[in-house]
């Protein structure tokens, strides 16, 4: 009976705006900055791990999450809302895909499923929009045959050579980076940032980003960008990094299984982050 009167809380203002969604975006824009950079051979997701008290245990806090073995996600905005979306994303990647096709969804499909969930919260009764923006990074296997590197002869004239012909997407395969907003809209990016200092970070990324970037350089740029916007000190415990890279077979848990491939998405350990920071 109660649902008979649960009207949508998100209603149009006379000027044609959905102010509830704008308020949700405001919540995002007060959130801790998160960024993502796409490289030719992978993607980096990075954010600051801010604790409100020196007594907090940073190792228990995690803002970058694995969704499928090849897809990871980070957020800016409200932590509890993000956790709900992580659960939903992990669930739909199985119910809508793996349990039907026996393979994990390509990045865009997962992004669309998450975006649908977010959109439904702007049109359903008795709910409020999600107060988060997401960055979703993943690697697609693709279905087109591997291309012969025809550009090899043309790169002999001193230009930088391309490490791979993969540019992402369902057909060719490769890295993909998406942003999902509280309205349910989503955008593919080469590099972007969300949260409090998104504008500053994006200006910085525009200057630093180059075509044909490699993953190692991307991690470097991610840390430099974070340094511009960060408030506290940068250590392995205050920075969180997730990468989509080559299959991490050491995370498989088994050895010698034919055809078994490790996850491409993994989070860097505090020690690995420290190593990058010392080289900064």
């Amino acid at each position: 009976m109660a649902d008979r009167y649960s009207f949508s809380l998100t209603t149009f203002s006379p000027s044609g705006k959905l102010v509830q969604i704008e308020y949700a975006l405001n919540a995002v824009n007060q959130g801790v900055t998160a960024l993502g950079i796409k490289a030719t051979n992978g993607i980096v997701l990075a954010t600051e791990k801010k604790s409100s008290s020196p007594l907090a245990d940073p190792s228990s806090l995690s803002k970058i999450s694995l969704i499928t073995p090849n897809i990871g996600m980070v957020y800016s905005g409200m932590g509890p809302d993000y956790r709900v979306l992580v659960d939903r994303a992990r669930k739909v990647s199985h119910t809508n895909y793996k349990r039907i096709y026996n393979e994990y969804p390509p990045t865009r499909i997962l992004v669309q499923d998450v975006a649908r969930e977010v959109q439904e919260a702007t049109q359903s009764g008795g709910v409020r929009p999600y107060g988060v923006s997401l960055l979703i990074a993943g690697w697609d296997e693709g279905i087109l045959p591997e291309e012969e590197d025809t550009s090899k002869t043309s790169t002999d004239d001193g230009e930088q050579k391309k490490p791979s012909g993969k540019t992402g997407g369902i057909l060719k395969g490769g890295p993909m980076l998406y942003q999902v907003d509280p309205s349910g809209s989503y955008f593919p990016w080469k590099a972007t940032a969300i949260g409090k200092s998104a504008t500053t970070a994006k200006t910085f990324l525009e200057k630093r980003y180059t075509e044909g970037l490699e993953l190692e350089d991307a991690v470097h740029i991610a840390l430099l960008t974070l340094k511009e916007t960060i408030e506290g000190e940068m250590t392995g415990d205050t920075i969180e990094i997730g990468i989509v890279g080559p299959p991490a077979d050491h995370l498989l848990g088994v050895e010698g299984v034919e055809g078994a491939k490790g996850p491409r998405f993994r989070k860097l350990t505090p020690q690995e982050i420290e190593d990058y920071l010392t080289n900064l």
Partner: peptide, 19 residues
Amino acid sequence: LREERAIAPRTFANLVSSS
């Protein structure tokens, strides 16, 4: 329509199985 690509035989086989 959803994936903007043709289905691969192995994927199709798994679809047949689950259906």
